[in-house]
């Protein structure tokens, strides 16, 4: 089985999942010290910590499979934007707290389905990371879904903000379910599901939550894409400029 795997595609795929965790973790961590209430500050930090931990595991495995002696840190800190493989959704700026929450919810609902499927990956290393991450992400989803419901069905202002957030994040959700050659190779090797196969379950979760939140389902919409093959929004460059500053300014230093 493992012998039949296209290594380059595997590395590419591992970077996709690892970069999603890295960039979303980065965005969430930007809230540290600035959240609307102390309890939320603490909860968000937990979430960012989970994501950074997951990114270390995925990128660590990517480096291992790649076999060129690189580390997770080198992948995180020494690739340029064009080499990053995360979804556009996760690199979008935080906006107000509603935007952040909606982005999180739409991603969590996808992330959990992906991880559930990965628990039966043909590659035991993938299955193991997925099993650990799934527990964390189940909690992320519980939280984000519940907060979307509460704020959608809260005050007129919170409803309006969540509606606006949904509208602006929605066009970035389609990319999660696009299949390409890398996905096909992974599915064929039994390593990962085809992204399109995750859509029905995601749709169910999202429809249920939006209905309970009294938010109108946006329906079919135009879909932005490009992150999975390295064509990003302008925002990622700034994320990396900040994140990679020390490693770039002082090459070779040990921290």
């Amino acid at each position: 089985m493992a012998g039949a795997v296209d290594q380059a595609a595997f590395v590419e795929w591992l970077q996709r999942i690892g970069d999603n965790a890295l960039i979303l973790g980065h965005r969430v961590s930007e809230w540290c010290g600035h959240a609307p209430v102390l309890e939320e500050d603490i909860a968000l930090a937990n979430q960012a910590l989970d994501l950074i931990g997951q990114c270390q595991l995925w990128l660590g495995l990517a480096a291992e499979v790649e076999g060129r002696g690189r580390t997770a840190d080198q992948l995180a800190y020494l690739r340029d934007a064009v080499e990053f493989r995360n979804l556009l959704l996760v690199e979008r700026p935080n906006g107000d707290f509603g935007q952040t929450l909606m982005r999180q919810f739409l991603f969590d609902a996808f992330h959990i389905e992906l991880l559930r499927a990965l628990k039966s990956s043909a590659d035991p290393r993938v299955a193991e990371i997925a099993a650990k991450a799934e527990k964390e992400v189940a909690y992320h989803l519980e939280r984000s879904a519940d907060l979307v419901v509460r704020l959608g069905d809260g005050t007129a202002e919170s409803h309006a903000r969540m509606e606006k957030a949904l509208k602006s994040q929605w066009p970035y959700t389609g990319e999660m379910f696009l299949d390409d050659a890398v996905d096909a190779a992974m599915a064929q090797a039994g390593i990962a599901p085809l992204p399109s196969s995750l859509r029905p379950a995601w749709e169910r979760t999202v429809s249920e939550v939006l209905a309970e939140a009294t938010l109108a389902h946006p329906g079919e919409a135009f879909s932005h894409k490009g992150g999975k093959r390295g064509v990003h929004t302008e925002h990622l460059g700034f994320v990396l400029a900040e994140m990679q500053f020390l490693q770039r300014a002082y090459p070779g230093a040990v921290w």
Binding site: H34, R150, T155, S158
Partner: peptide, 18 residues
């Protein structure tokens, strides 16, 4: 952070009361 978060805190309180 406090002022920007007012709608969030109020929204959650309103939901809990509803």
């Amino acid at each position: 952070a406090w002022e920007d978060g007012a709608w969030f805190r109020d929204g959650l309180m309103a939901h809990a009361e509803k």
